[in-house]
Design a binder for these strands. Structure first.
Length: 834
RNA sequence: GCCGGAAUGGUGGAAUUGGUAGACGCAGCGGACUCAAAAUCCGCCGGGUUCACGCCCUUGAGGGUUCAAGUCCCUCUUCCGGUACCA
């Protein structure tokens, strides 16, 4: 059967997809005889249909997967569904259906879309996090964590999204708004479950060093900042006339002698007892109420006017014993440090403003090197390091030494200690929503909170419920779910009706993929040891903190609970964060109506073209604008390959890529061979080492241009036809990871016996890249003045001699004196003249 | 404010270790084929100057290092991302 002149993608793509499916071509099992490569993209939320962002993400991953297979790796390339979550509930309410029904229908449709794209997944490992077979293990992890005190329950002021009717983790609050629906987040006192992620703060921070080189540096920086480690001291200020003291955290112990007041957050637990019975108690309470009711966004804004009120209470300076007034301030955060700060107005800008406003003394204890500050003349705090003054025996010390010495003194006297503070908070995982994994505990009136017994897992999420109109969870109103038996006393108990944050499911799915069908345990130990860690992870940078931090934490936590192998400290060795697909310069979004639907594009151009364009348009990390002319260009290239093969079919034979040539080959054969081997080298390096798919494709285009150039001339000879055939085989092999369907089809038409997906990546040969003569650039004073052809391997003297003989060069040397010559062998001669 | 990143033709982007700036595309222009168009194929394509060979300028701006700078250093501008009363 002859190839048709025009490329008609659809039948061909369907044909190969069916074949891959029936062969289970991309199913893999552990095989100690081959090196493994675990490649994973972030799994999608089953929102309904895939969008261009998915297509880009999964096309990048598929190129890597197919490439590594050809390189001889045993590749694990899985896919699954991040299937719990709010949109399912909201859609169910809107469309009067059930979240489960909606979710599974979406999964079915989206699976068919992914298959139409021709991605090489091991479909036998597909997971959906909303299935009990998946989340039951999560419940087991929860119980294990409970035993190890890595998960706990506490009442605290929480981020509450009034629109989603649920609390949010700190990581899910963006600019004071809900990460999902953009509603302004409120504060609410609630008892919630927390993962003790702060127990891993130091390791999460330290292990970022292990990821250097493999992860984008900005992601490492973001995580570093999010964890926010600061070293300092916790210092006790005894309360006047009481046995208790107020603890403060400071990074500037060197300024201790400059403390003129203390500021407490209005929420500080001591406040109540400090203000009780004061004559202005009512006014103070009014201030506290006003501050607490403030919008979180407003309260944390930098332009917020610093407000405060004196409590009437005093504490004592831990060293001098001086009386220090205690104030309340609207800018002090209850949840950071101890919720109380020692105020040093001379050396902290906030304290400075506060002191000026309320007429509190300003005491200078740090001077800049060689200068002396006058408090009355200052218009801003001096916040840098300097030399201590007015600080008794510490005066004269530079700040860092003073800091250490003062902390040592406090420690010796039991008044304080060196300590470390983190910005990172424990992870609140309770969600007051229905469509999530149940938290496996019950509450008994007699025995209190009791974990469900492991043998009673899973705690199934009941499916026979009706979602509430207003978005509230139906679980508390579902007696068959709520009514439970206390595992301790056998009496009646009430089941926990909060569900887990969906980020819990996505924190360990990479490990489940290694043994996705295992029924008696979450993981198969041999499979874990064989596959983990993930060699390459690909996904959007929007998960730089949220998901990636949680997954790193889970890895360490599951390791310590004995689920993951010891020594497996990090889940993802290398991370590629792909940019967004834009349209008209802005992010594609339904509400803006600037969407390019992948289905429509596949319909029009075929999956190969869509994949190719996504990879050619820009390097993967960068955002790119979808353009009609761009995808047309990609389509034109696909057609050009097809067209060229169909025209040359009589000339071509099924030789392998990078075939050997006879020694007596003509110059054109050698030139084409050089182009072929150069392309093989470049494409391999671009994909394997640089993630530069756009330049890899450009190199294949260049090879095709070279074939086109030599085609007429070389068709006439046996040698020439062999060279053309080899070059064409290279084009197909190199292009296969990008446009697998078309390449397979042509490969088969050419008469190759095995399929391309079993073909090995071609090996370029150094001797093919060497030439008899090289073009050497000649510069005079660094400016390009001429080019000379010189025999390869010429020595420096010969190159300079040839350069000086060049007429164009000679013109610029006329009447000048040669000061120096610089030679880069095989490349460049620079003649420096005066 | 602090911490990252970026800025290259009309346009998306190349230039990997300091060594020919603008690969490969897109758009545009010219030509072939065609009754014509589409498709395809071939050629041109940073700016200035020149009949031309050339010469000069050019990688956000200004300085510096170097035989040689898009690339390294300093200062600045603009844009993007993260974070922010974190004590």
């Amino acid at each position: 059967m002859a190839l048709q002149y025009r490329y008609a993608p659809h039948g061909i793509e369907e044909k190969w997809q069916k074949q891959w499916e029936s062969k289970q071509a991309f199913h893999c099992t552990e095989d100690a005889s081959r090196p493994k490569y675990y490649l994973m993209e972030m799994f999608p939320y089953p929102s309904g249909r895939i969008h261009m962002g998915h297509v880009r993400n999964y096309s990048i991953g598929d190129v890597m997967a197919r490439f590594r297979r050809m390189q001889g790796y045993n590749v694990l390339h899985p896919i699954g569904w991040d299937a719990f979550g709010l949109p399912a509930e909201n859609a169910a309410i809107k469309n009067n259906t059930h979240p489960a029904k909606w979710t599974y229908a979406n999964i079915d449709y989206m699976r068919s879309q992914l298959k139409r794209m021709g991605y090489s997944y091991d479909w036998q490992r597909e997971v959906a996090t909303c299935r009990p077979e998946y989340y039951r293990w999560e419940q087991e992890f929860f119980l294990k964590c409970l035993k190890k005190n890595l998960v706990y329950r506490k009442k605290a002021s929480q981020n509450w999204c009034p629109c989603c009717h649920t609390v949010l983790a700190n990581e899910q609050v963006i600019d004071g708004k809900c990460w999902r629906c953009d509603s302004v987040v409120e504060q609410k006192d609630l008892t919630q479950w927390f993962f003790r992620i702060t127990a891993y703060a130091d390791e999460l921070l330290a292990d970022l060093a292990k990821l250097e080189g493999g992860w984008p540096s900005r992601v490492l920086t973001m995580q570093n900042n999010w964890i926010g480690r600061s070293t300092g001291a916790e210092i006790s200020f005894p309360l006047e006339g009481r046995y208790e003291s107020v603890k403060v955290f400071t990074t500037r112990a060197d300024t201790l002698y400059g403390v003129t007041f203390l500021t407490l957050a209005p929420e500080h637990p001591l406040v109540e007892s400090l203000i009780k019975g004061r004559e202005n108690e009512a006014a103070i309470r009014e201030f506290i109420e006003r501050t607490r009711n403030m919008d979180r966004l407003d309260r944390q804004s930098e332009t917020l006017e610093k407000e405060g009120v004196f409590t009437g209470a005093y504490c004592l300076h831990p060293i001098t014993g001086e009386r220090v007034p205690i104030w309340l301030g609207n800018f002090v955060l209850a949840e950071y440090g101890t919720g109380a700060v020692m105020a040093v107005p001379a050396h902290d800008q906030r304290d400075f403003e506060f002191a000026r406003k309320f007429g509190i003394p300003i005491k200078v204890v740090i001077n800049p090197e060689g200068a002396s500050l006058d408090p009355a003349a200052m218009d801003a705090a001096f916040t840098e390091s300097g030399v201590l003054v007015d600080s008794r025996e510490f005066s004269g010390m530079p700040s860092p030494a003073g800091r250490e010495a003062i902390i040592r003194k406090l420690e010796a006297e039991g008044k304080g200690k060196a300590t470390v503070n983190y910005r990172l908070r424990d992870w609140n995982i309770s969600r007051q929503r229905y469509w999530g994994a149940p938290i496996p505990v019950v509450y008994c009136e007699k025995c209190g909170m009791q974990p469900v017994k492991e043998e009673d897992l899973p705690v199934l999420l009941p499916l026979d419920v009706k979602t509430c109109e207003d978005g509230r969870s139906p679980l508390p109103d579902t007696p068959s779910f709520v009514q439970a038996v206390c595992p301790c006393c056998g009496g009646p108990a009430r089941r926990e009706t909060d569900t887990m944050d969906t980020f819990v499911e996505s924190s360990w799915y990479f490990a489940r993929y290694t043994s996705a069908r295992k029924e008696d345990a979450p993981f198969d130990e041999d499979a874990l040891r064989y596959w983990l860690p993930v060699d390459q992870y690909v996904g959007g940078v929007e998960h730089a903190i949220l998901h990636l931090l949680y997954a790193r934490f889970f890895t360490k936590m599951l390791r310590d609970c004995g689920y993951l192998p010891k020594g497996l400290d990090e889940p993802f060795k290398r991370l590629l964060t792909q940019g967004m697909v834009l349209l008209g310069g802005s992010k594609m979004s339904k509400s803006k109506g600037n969407i390019v639907d992948p289905d429509a594009m596949v319909e029009k151009y075929g999956a190969d073209t869509v994949r190719l364009f996504c990879l050619f348009a820009a390097p993967p990390e960068r955002d790119f604008d979808w353009t009609d002319s761009g995808i047309e260009g990609a389509y034109r290239f696909v057609n050009r390959v097809w067209h060229m093969f169909s025209e040359m079919q009589d000339v071509l034979s099924p030789v392998s890529a990078c075939s050997d040539m006879s020694a007596s080959s003509s110059a054109s054969v050698r030139a084409l061979r050089l182009a072929e081997h150069a392309a093989v080298k470049k494409v391999g390096e671009d994909i394997a080492d640089r993630n530069q798919f756009n330049t890899a494709i450009a190199a294949i285009m260049e090879l095709l241009n070279a074939i086109s150039l030599y085609r007429a001339e070389l068709s006439g000879s046996e040698d020439g036809r062999r060279a053309l055939s080899s070059a064409m085989s290279s084009v197909l092999t190199l292009l296969y990871p990008f446009t697998p369907h078309m390449c397979e089809e042509i490969w088969q038409e050419l008469g190759h016996e095995k399929e391309l997906d079993t073909e090995v990546w071609p090996q370029w040969k150094p001797e093919a890249l060497s030439t008899d003569t090289v073009t050497v650039v000649v510069q005079v004073n660094g400016k390009l003045r001429g080019r000379i052809d010189a025999p390869a391997g010429s020595d420096k003297e010969a190159l300079v001699k040839a350069a000086l003989a060049d007429s164009a060069v000679a013109r610029h040397l006329d009447g000048k004196t040669i000061v120096k010559t610089v030679v880069v062998p095989e490349k460049l001669v620079n003649i420096v003249v005066r």
